[in-house]
Design a protein around this nucleic acid. Structure first.
Lengths: 165, 165
DNA sequence: GTTGACTTGTTATGCTGTAACACACAGAAC
DNA sequence: GTTCTGTGTGTTACAGCATAACAAGTCAAC
């Protein structure tokens, strides 16, 4: 589960090279353990997502892949992205019809997302307390929650400090 | 704010004719107070959404409208739906790329949604406790939440009682 | 080296959503 | 009552998002 600092760390300036390669290493390790293959397209797709903390559309990813010699048809990108999502290495953002690399693979695989409307970066927040509240409200109406989408739009600390209203 | 029974009421069998016309009346009254016009297309669009408690795609609504003599091009449906959403008479469901009539116009305009994966009906739940939890978690990372999307997929009481797994 | 599972690439198509423009119509201004 | 103005409705055309279906390549297991 991501802890408090993880959110701030996402939005604040940081050694992104190291941040990305750490995630990539973890990903490779995790996949090996599952018998899944991190093929060139898949690896490159993850690297592209990891270059920023933004969410990217499938076609934006596809353009990048095509420019580097991979296939240039939509399924190429969608398949790689779906693979990453399935294996917990990326997330799909419903509000944006876009994808973002998971920064905490192996932790909570259905986090809440915090999307900054100014810098467009996306952070993952601990979903447990939110899911608990949702589950409780739903239970009062006899509804059993199985999966929840929680996506918040707002302003991150870094942009707020820079004076963005 | 919808109270506990409102969720169960949505999923359970009920006098839907009355349920729909009550909402329609409330809608007309509210709009009149705002100086907004519930024109034929808009009214019919709301009626179509109110026929069930399901969410409908814009093109599904469009087919219905076209069959009844309204325009048959996408903007016809999208404009009517956007009007209803803007005035709090309908909601957009991100997960489904679809729209559902608001059953509690005038209350919380950003509720949490409970979507039954068996009967496809959509209920609105009180979002306040959930939003509080989300706001708290985000605040720990310095993030200020402005708008939140909360959509749960699961099983409603009625379907569960009927033995759906 | 053949089999079979998986991966990658393609073509073609479908679903979702919007920009831009023309016309109709209601109500206000005169 | 005519004119003006804003809103609403309809159109065409297009942009963006996503998947079905098929062909060919790769690679480990046998």
């Amino acid at each position: 589960m991501p802890h408090d600092d993880a959110i701030a760390a996402t939005f604040a300036p940081h050694d992104h090279q190291q941040c990305a390669s750490r995630v990539l290493d973890e990903a490779a390790t995790r996949l090996a353990g599952q018998g899944a293959r991190l093929t060139p397209v898949r690896r490159r797709t993850l690297e592209i997502l990891l270059e920023s903390h933004r969410a990217m559309g499938a076609y934006e990813v596809l353009d990048r892949l095509a420019a580097e010699g991979f296939g240039r048809q939509p399924p190429v990108a969608y398949r790689a992205l779906e693979f990453l999502v399935t294996h917990g290495l990326a997330h799909r953002l419903q509000r944006l019809n876009a994808f973002a690399a998971c920064l905490h693979p192996g932790h909570d695989h259905h986090p809440a997302f915090l999307i900054c409307r100014s810098c467009d970066k996306v952070a993952e927040a601990a979903a447990a307390p939110i899911r608990d509240a949702l589950t409780a409200v739903a239970a009062q109406g006899g509804f059993r929650v199985e999966r929840a989408t929680v996506e918040a739009l707002g302003l991150c600390a870094t942009c707020a400090e820079e004076g963005v209203a």
